[in-house]
């Protein structure tokens, strides 16, 4: 019995090691952001389908390379704000799932617009014991002012996770709070869930209509 347990432990460990070898450098938050960004950009630069607007391929790329480093439960909690506490565990799960779908679909599309912009990483201003940090980056392009992109990360048992992205100071997450609050006031948490589902369905329909 003991033997089997240790065998499983060894197996789990080797799988874990393999996973880590494939995955990004997750030891520090800035190294994590840089490695994921470099990874994604290298792929987009070579992928003609994504460059010409293939949303499904962009979503696939984001799902495999980016999502493992995002904490969507935290993001959804932030987006919903104070109404989050009134949601049941089941509602929280559905909300998180629908919000994740909406964010992934919307911002994967933004990847198809990538055209050789250069990304600069600012030095991390954080103490080693910090568990909540901001990684600052800048997207540079000719003829325009650089666009600031900041990532908020939180240290969790399994490593650093992104819980907010700010473009030019605008949080992609809390930007939804007014919107979501209005939905909850009008139709409760279930009303918000329905609106999110409808929105995702509508995006699905437009995406397939384009094909």
């Amino acid at each position: 019995m003991h033997k089997i347990a240790s065998l499983f432990a060894a197996l789990a460990l080797s799988v874990g090691v393999q996973f880590n070898a494939l995955a990004a450098d997750v030891t520090t938050p800035d190294a994590l952001v840089k490695s994921v960004t470099d990874d994604v950009i290298t792929i987009v630069r070579q992928d003609k389908a994504i460059q010409s607007g293939d949303t499904r391929k962009a979503v696939e790329l984001v799902e495999t390379r980016v999502l493992p480093y995002f904490d969507f439960a935290h993001m959804t909690r932030l987006a919903v704000g104070r109404d989050w506490k009134t949601a049941s565990p089941e509602q929280k799960t559905v909300l998180t799932q629908e919000f994740k779908t909406l964010l992934v679909r919307t911002y994967s599309n933004a990847l198809t617009q990538y055209r050789n912009q250069q990304i600069d990483f600012k030095p991390l201003k954080a103490k080693p014991e910090d568990t909540d940090v901001v990684v600052r980056t800048e997207v540079r392009q000719p003829g325009a002012k650089a666009v600031q992109i900041d990532y908020n990360l939180e240290k969790q048992p399994e490593g650093w996770k992104v819980y907010d992205v700010l473009v030019a100071g605008v949080s992609l997450v809390t930007n939804y709070r007014d919107d979501f609050g209005k939905e909850v006031r009008a139709g409760g948490i279930d009303g918000l869930i329905k609106s999110l589902k409808d929105k995702n369905k509508q995006l699905d329909a437009t995406a397939s209509a384009k094909k």
Partner: peptide
């Protein structure tokens, strides 16, 4: 296009966007 796809209510989304964006500008990022 991104804003169009992201928002449940584009008006509210743009309002929140503008207010956050300007605050960030006033504080120079």
């Amino acid at each position: 296009t991104t804003a169009e796809q992201a928002a449940l209510d584009k008006y509210g989304y743009m309002r929140s966007f503008y207010l956050q964006y300007r605050l960030n500008q006033v504080y120079d990022g």
